[in-house]
């Protein structure tokens, strides 16, 4: 209970602070798996590569853990773009988790489109632990794409 109250309070507060979430400075949320993409993003760091700072990473054990409703929740909370990323097919630490993720995404994407979400705001990409450079280019390209879109097209879930 207490937590929920806090959340509500914070939601209000945060509406007024910093990151304006406008078209020029969009919030991007990335759901990534622990083993490949998170490590790939770490590699970009240890290699001192530079990339757009709009992204916020949420780490999950596996891309198979990514519930489609996480994506909806992210949009509801003002994200302008959502990235889903895990191990390449065949490389999943959990053998088949990324296949579940891919299949779910294929089905859910259509539904998102039906609901009116601009599908260019959702990106799905395989990034391995050795692909720091791919992480950088995916983030940069996706951020540039989101910045080029009309701001209102993600407001479908916002009241």
């Amino acid at each position: 209970m207490e937590d929920k109250k806090e959340d509500k309070k914070r939601d209000k507060e945060e509406g007024s602070v910093k990151s304006d979430g406008s078209a020029g400075d969009p919030r991007i949320i990335a759901f990534v798996c622990n083993w490949c993409t998170y490590s790939g993003a770490d590699l970009a760091g240890t290699s001192r590569m530079k990339y757009s700072d709009n992204v916020r990473v949420i780490k999950l054990p596996c891309s198979g853990r990514i519930d489609p409703l996480f994506i909806v929740e992210a949009f509801k909370k003002g994200a302008k773009g959502v990235l889903i990323s895990g191990c390449h097919p065949g490389d999943c630490h959990y053998i088949s988790g990324n296949y579940h993720s891919r299949r779910k995404y294929a089905a859910f994407r259509d539904l998102l489109g039906f609901l009116g979400v601009d599908l260019s705001r959702v990106e799905f990409s395989w990034i391995s632990a050795s692909e720091g450079n791919k992480w950088v280019s995916v983030i940069n390209e996706f951020t540039a794409k989101i910045k080029s879109l009309k701001s209102s097209s993600s407001d479908i879930f916002k009241k």
Binding site: R10, D11, E14, I29, I58, F70, K77, G78
Partner: peptide, 9 residues
């Protein structure tokens, strides 16, 4: 969900 909410704008 709490993590996502914490990122709310």
């Amino acid at each position: 969900y709490a993590e996502i909410r914490s990122l709310a704008i």
